[in-house]
Design a binder for these strands. Sequence first.
DNA 1: GTCTATATAGGGATAGAC
DNA 2: GTCTATCCCTATATAGAC
Lengths: 165, 165
Amino acid sequence: MSEATGLCRSSLYYYFPNGKEDMANAALAAVGNWFTRHVMSTLESRDAPALRLQRFSSKLAEHYANGLAPCLMDVFTIGEAGSLFQQHLSNRMRALMSILAAVAEEAGADKLEAAIRAENAVVAIQGSLIVARAVGNNGAFLRVIENLPGNLLGVQANSTGNVLT
Amino acid sequence: MSEATGLCRSSLYYYFPNGKEDMANAALAAVGNWFTRHVMSTLESRDAPALRLQRFSSKLAEHYANGLAPCLMDVFTIGEAGSLFQQHLSNRMRALMSILAAVAEEAGADKLEAAIRAENAVVAIQGSLIVARAVGNNGAFLRVIENLPGNLLGVQANSTGNVLT
DNA sequence: GTCTATATAGGGATAGAC
DNA sequence: GTCTATCCCTATATAGAC
């Protein structure tokens, strides 16, 4: 952290008197804000749901470096960090599911169906990041990203994500 | 670890001269073997694919304490551990996907389709564990477990997992 | 405000008594 | 084989000079 800021370790305690926890919260908030402004914001235009979801998928892939970057969500849900920041992470994940569900509803799904599609989407994103890292191959992540818009819109497709004709 | 074994820290070095890495590998292997014998083995009988998958889902839920237990896969794919044990984890995850794909094939899917369903299943399991921990609610995990057999068998269902009638 | 120096604690590991 | 004592190293944090 000191390297990233250009300050030495102890100087950070001037800005974050409560130490580690303060710093992690600040980092978490910064990443969260970035994510909100650059990724989630793509879902808030007045364009068609399909178009917004395309843009969202694209930004999401970028954010996770096509599945090669670790994810704060799972990093912080592991081990001791989990207890300290769960509230923060829980809120962010719920917010993401909520906005995805809103788009699905707008595309015609009823409330329950939309909520389930949104949850499935988040589950698929997180899961594919884990799988990608575990097997050292981002194929699963790329496939999930590609299928994300269709799955949220409820397009009938086979398991490969190809729309049935 | 010392508490778990009843031995003090230094005594463990008698059994694991290479220290931490040896210990972690032993623990990983033990869990892996347990998983193979108790969970993956449910997929190897001569019963119908649907029945085997039901049993598998049930054992899997038990293994993860219905989504409330952390998962070695994601614990070890995070941080420094990742590099040391990636081979181990990669192998186990591939083995799981491979046996799930075999069951899907047996149920009539072609090779590619079966592989994709298997990957989707593993992605959903891992993702739902992350989501369950992040939001402090195992609903997503339970839903994934419930839908797992149908998804692998390629049953046409809506997003809630209810088979279409 | 930012630094150097220092304290404290814990994990990882070894030495050697028994 | 198992223990106690000890060492080393790193992360976390504080003190105090400038």
